[in-house]
């Protein structure tokens, strides 16, 4: 089962989710929170950390129970486990800060339907050792948080002239209102995707040219 990849814990088991298989910029998963809660950097960070916690906790538990759970009921079992940890996060954020909880709104509860988490449970955690599942979930969570921060930082700087709530440009800054509204999420997501894709494209083009140069 799943023997195509090494079962050793390597740097790559972590870094894969962060960059090469980044859940947002490469796999385009979990778009709902990506667009909805990235209107400020702090919201993006909180959402990313909450999702990372759910990814790691559910990944660990599912990996531990992977020989126990019958195939026929695995999805139901995964969802119950994921929902449990989402509820834990929900209560914890309420206890930490009500303002943050109100800012994130229903999207905390909606982590349960974030396809990254069920996808990783099904495709990875349920087939690997706990250590691997945990490290990979951390990588995926870090990748998700990184992507959310990419959006949140740009949207907060342009939309509020601030970063993590600290004023950057003084009182006379004219905020770009559209950036904290839903269209801003789409525009900035599109811009980041464009940037990453353009970079990838250019690297490929360059390596192709180098090969040709060597051949010719």
């Amino acid at each position: 089962m799943g023997m195509n990849k090494s079962d050793d814990v390597t740097w790559d088991s972590f870094a894969e989710g962060l960059w090469r298989e980044n859940p947002v910029f490469v796999m385009l998963l979990g778009m709902c929170p990506v667009l909805a809660v990235t209107n400020s950097a702090i919201n993006a960070l909180a959402m990313g950390l909450a999702t990372t916690f759910v990814l790691m906790a559910s990944g660990l538990l599912i990996s531990l129970m992977r020989h126990l759970i019958p195939k026929q009921v695995r999805i139901a079992a995964f969802i119950v486990i994921i929902a449990t940890f989402v509820t834990v996060v929900d209560y914890s954020i309420q206890a930490i800060s009500l303002d943050l909880y109100n800012a994130l709104g229903a999207f905390i509860q909606l982590i349960v339907v974030n396809c990254i988490i069920l996808g990783r449970a099904e495709a990875y955690a349920s087939k690997r050792r706990p250590a691997l599942a945990l490290i990979s979930a951390l990588g995926m969570g870090a990748g998700f948080t990184f992507a959310l921060l990419c959006l949140g930082v740009v949207r907060e700087i342009l939309g509020a002239g601030a970063l993590f709530g600290f004023d950057l440009f003084g009182a006379n800054f004219e905020p770009w209102v559209v950036m904290v509204l839903p269209p801003g999420g789409f525009i900035i997501l599109g811009a980041w995707l464009l940037l990453f894709d353009w970079r990838k494209h250019r690297t490929q083009l360059r390596s192709l040219q180098e090969e040709r140069g060597r051949a010719g």
Partner: peptide, 10 residues
Amino acid sequence: AFVQAAFPVA
């Protein structure tokens, strides 16, 4: 449309 959404006052 973009500046209308971005700078509603101006």
